[in-house]
């Protein structure tokens, strides 16, 4: 065999040996241990620190908030959804408290095609306009459930005191004028609250304020019990010129508190069904103008036009004030 061939073969053999040596030398530790990969990479990946810590991490310091949150409807929305990941907190400082709740809450609650029916959704413009959600809602207990004051008045005693009211609100609590509200069958808790507000000055009215200031606390309770006990069946309203159908569409935004047909599900809120249209329109306008103060009503009335208000008032005044079948009795 010629010398160059022999040398070439030797060179190839050396090259092959070097390649094998290189393979052995450069194969990293733990490769092939469990398969065709570097086994040590598994514990390396597993060792990464979690960023989101779960509510269990928040509980020890924020027990009160966690308790409130976990007892209410947002209990499936963990702390870190709104406050961001808790890794490094509290050592590295506070976690953010979202201020632009209108942007945050609507991520889930803006009415949008594709969202399941079960998800509570709002038409943002109609529901609250530019109002921030936290104006009315507590994010840790978002459902607005006004605590209904227990009314423990004596209806008979109330009846005696009611003579002064009859001039405007009618002897049977059914007002003769379109601009004064019916009181018959209204929720007692609401009546007590509103009368209390006139008495304390939280709400002002040329006629109502002096009358309410003359009442004792017991009188307020008694009157509320009396009017609540009256039948509202006599309340009949003439059909108005406004568009009831348009009002019905708008009324969906009121349904959560006032019921679909204006029969409130919670005694803390007023029934609207069968109420005087003129009164309803005035009240809404007063809320819109800020003359009557209520954070929830201020928000929802903001986006309403005069025509909207007329339509809504027409719709609610046309409804029957009897409790909706199957609905919760007030």
């Amino acid at each position: 065999m010629p010398r160059h061939i022999a040398r070439l073969i030797a060179l190839i053999v050396v090259f092959g040996a070097l390649a094998l040596l290189a393979k052995w030398y450069f194969t990293v530790d733990s490769f092939y241990e469990y398969g065709h990969y570097r086994a040590n990479s598994v514990p390396e990946i597993a060792a990464q620190a979690p960023v989101f810590q779960t509510p269990r991490y928040c509980q020890p310091c924020h027990a009160e908030r966690v308790a409130l949150w976990s007892a209410n409807s947002h209990k499936t929305v963990i702390c870190e959804v709104c406050h961001g990941p808790a890794q490094g907190h509290p050592a590295n400082g506070k976690l953010p408290i979202p201020t632009d709740t209108k942007k945050l809450c609507t991520l889930c609650h803006e009415a949008m095609p594709g969202r399941p029916r079960a998800q509570p959704q709002i038409d943002v413009a109609r529901h609250a306009g530019d109002q921030q959600c936290i104006a009315c809602h507590n994010p840790h207990a978002p459902k607005i459930v006004a605590a209904a004051a227990q009314v423990a008045g004596d209806a008979a005693a109330g009846k005696k005191r009611a003579g002064a009211c009859a001039g405007c609100h009618g002897a049977q609590g059914v007002s003769a004028s379109d601009t004064w509200p019916n009181l018959a069958g209204q929720n007692a808790a609401y009546l007590a609250k509103i009368l209390g507000a006139y008495k304390s000055g939280d709400q002002k009215d040329m006629v109502m304020t002096p009358m309410a200031q003359g009442l004792g606390d017991a009188d307020v309770q008694n009157l509320a019990a009396h009017f609540a006990g009256l039948s509202c069946a006599a309340a009949r309203n003439e059909s108005s010129a406004a568009d009831v159908a348009a009002g019905k569409a708008l009324a969906k935004n009121c349904a959560a508190c006032h019921g679909e047909t204006g029969v409130a599900t919670n005694p803390a809120w007023p029934k609207l069904a069968g109420q005087k249209a003129g009164y309803l329109a005035n009240a809404l306008k007063a809320f819109r103008a800020g003359l009557r103060r209520d954070p929830t009503m201020a928000g929802v009335s903001r986006g309403l036009s005069d025509a909207d208000i007329a339509n809504l008032a027409a719709y609610f005044s046309a409804q029957s004030c009897a409790p909706a079948p199957g609905g919760r009795a007030p």
Partner: peptide, 11 residues
């Protein structure tokens, strides 16, 4: 723990 996406999903 759960994966972060599972942990965070509100629904």
């Amino acid at each position: 723990l759960q994966p972060a996406c599972v942990e965070i999903c509100p629904v």
